[in-house]
Each structure stands twice: as structure tokens, then as C-alpha cells.
Simulated scan of single mutants.
Amino acid sequence: MPEVQVNGIQLHYDEQGSGEPMLLIMGLATQMIAWPPPMLDALQAKGFRVIRFDNRDIGLSTKTDAPRPRRKDVLAAAASARFAKSDYLLSDMADDAAGLLDALGIDSAHVVGVSMGGMIAQELTIRHPEKVRSLTSIMSNTGNRRQGRPATTFLPALRRSMMAPPAETLDQAVDMGVLAWRQISGPQFDEQEIRSLVRAAVERDPDPIGRVRQLLAINASPDRTPALRKVTAPTLVIHGLLDRLVTPSGGMATAKAVPGSRLLMFPDMAHDLPRGRIPEIVDAITANAARAGQAAPAAASA
């Protein structure tokens, strides 16, 4: 699998298809292999050059060389932004994404992010507006802690999952991963499919500490709402009404913040990409990309 050096780190990436570039940014503790193959194939069939990558601290990309975060620091960061300390911020991860586009010789791309990836995609659009033809933010939020917070009933499970000690065996790690996916997914959860995905992810990256570092980056990053009000890229916001990890108010706040954005919410979607909804999601992303039209920088030469 190819890799590039950007922003002082190595990023592993993959691409398929040809046409207008579309950069996919995955979420917290989740590797690029989590993008559903039917979604990748459908986007390619729509005429996009689909690029995905492992964020820093996950998968095959660079891991932070620093002391492991302490449990008390993680809990303090979750309680208040004042106590949140991180080795990097979401803005640094957005610069990673911008660097990947530069390394691939891409002036601008359509950008799609899910969960933390949506936060990174928003930061990319804010910090490097010339690089973003269109923005799709899925099951994410603006960084305002009053909106898109985990459901109160879900917080204990979330804390147990994030702070769990490393598994002692591969099978135990897979079981823990499947349980975490089940807790955030909606009614279309496919255990066999997720078990296969989790096993592949654990084999690629057996040390889960990256998820804690990424969580600290989220908690330490500022509210993006004021900057989102200045975004001019065509923007689509997608959210599930069943989402307990990033509750629907996060998506609604994002759509409200970005002028001219469009909001699409699914009643049977939680914090996942339901296979039955992928055709609609891909059609919506494609329609949003089309809104960029000829105004997108370098659209004819990419």
C-alpha cells in the first residue's frame, strides 16, 4: 500500500477510479478499511477518483512518539475543554489531509468525512478553502460541546470502551471491537461483516492507544462554529436520527452554521453507514459535488 510523507509524518493511503478527486476522511479510532466497499465502488462508478487514508495514530500511518495518555487526563479533557491537552489538534490532522492532496498533485478535491473525519473535513475547508470543491460532513458536529454530545445513557459504555486495557489475545480484541461497533450501530448492523472488518483492523494495528490520542485531539480543539459561517464550498450534512455517539443536534448545528448547506437525516441510521442507505448517500454526495460546478479550482485538470 502506498504512503507519503506529509506534515512530518507518514500517511498510508489508497485510491481507486479516475475523474474528479474525492478525499474520504475516516473517524475516531477507525481505519480507512472501514469505508464500505459498496460505497467506494458506487462513488467510483459515479466518476470519482476515490482517495482514502489512515489518519495519524491509526492503521499503518505514523504513531505519535510521546508518553501514553493517563486515564485521569482523558477524563478531565472529557469534562472540560479547559483541561484538555493533546499532542496535536484536529487542525493538524486537517493539514495532514491537505498535505496528502499536495503529495498526490491534486489542487482541490471533494471532501467527505465521517464522525471525527467530518470534523477534520470541516477544518480542512476552513484552513484550506482553495483545496475543497465541496464538503460532506457525516454524523459529526461543530465542536460546540453543547451540541452533538454523546447521549447521557451512552456515556458509561463510551468511557469503558475508550479506556479499556489492551486485549490479551486477537480473539478478545475482535470481540471487544465488535461490541463497540454494535453499541454505536443502527438496526442494519451486520455482525459477520463487522467481525471480519474488526479482525482485519486489529491485524493491521494491534495497539489501541491511537484512539485515545485522537479523542484528546477532539476535546482539545476549539469550536468551529464561527469559522463555519464563512464556508462557501457547497456543503451537505448527513446524520442519523438514532445516533447516540454524536447525537443529531450535532448535524443540525453544522447545517445551521454553514450558509446554504443541505441537511439529510435518516430515521434508521445511527453512528454508522447503513448498507441499505448507501445508494441514497452516494447520490446525495454526488449531487452536492455537482453544485461546485465550474467554480471549483482546477476542476478541468484534476
Results as ranks from 00 to 15, higher is better:
L215C: 12
H239M: 00
P279A: 00
I194G: 12
K256N: 07
S261M: 02
P234W: 02
L263K: 10
P279C: 00
T254I: 08
T232G: 14
H239L: 00
A255F: 05
H239K: 01
D272L: 01
L215W: 10
R182I: 07
S261Q: 06
L228F: 01
Q214C: 06
V246S: 12
V237F: 06
G240E: 04
E280S: 12
L216E: 10
V246W: 06
M176F: 03
L273G: 08
A255N: 15
A201Q: 14
P279D: 00
M252S: 14
L216M: 09
R224V: 01
K230H: 08
E191C: 06
R277S: 13
P274Y: 05
V282Q: 08
V212I: 13
I278M: 15
E280T: 11
R195Y: 06
P222K: 02
V246Y: 06
L242D: 14
D205C: 07
L264M: 13
H271W: 02
M265P: 10
A217R: 07
P248D: 06
S196A: 09
T235E: 02
L242H: 14
I281M: 09
I238G: 13
F266H: 15
L242T: 15
D175K: 05
D268G: 02
Q183F: 07
K230M: 04
I278S: 15
L273F: 02
Q183G: 13
G250S: 03
P279M: 00
D223S: 04
P248Q: 03
T247R: 03
R213Y: 06
R213C: 04
D190H: 02
R195M: 02
Q192G: 14
I194C: 10
A257N: 07
N219D: 10
V178Y: 07
L228V: 05
S185Q: 11
A217W: 09
P222S: 05
K256T: 10
D283M: 02
M176L: 02
R244Y: 05
T247S: 07
L273V: 13
R275K: 09
D223T: 04
S196F: 01
A233C: 12
F266K: 11
M265Q: 08
L264S: 15
L264H: 15
K230V: 03
H271Q: 06
T225N: 06
R229L: 01
M269Y: 11
R275Q: 08
M269W: 09
I281F: 04
S196I: 01
R244H: 09
Q188T: 14
L197I: 14
P274T: 13
S221E: 08
Q188F: 02
G260L: 01
I194W: 07
R277G: 09
A217D: 13
V178G: 13
D272Q: 08
R199E: 09
D205E: 10
R277A: 07
V231S: 02
L236G: 15
P274W: 03
E191P: 12
S249E: 14
A255G: 15
D283I: 01
V178K: 08
V202F: 02
I184C: 08
S185C: 12
P187S: 09
S185P: 13
R277W: 01
V282A: 08
R199I: 00
L216S: 12
L273Q: 08
I238Q: 14
A233M: 06
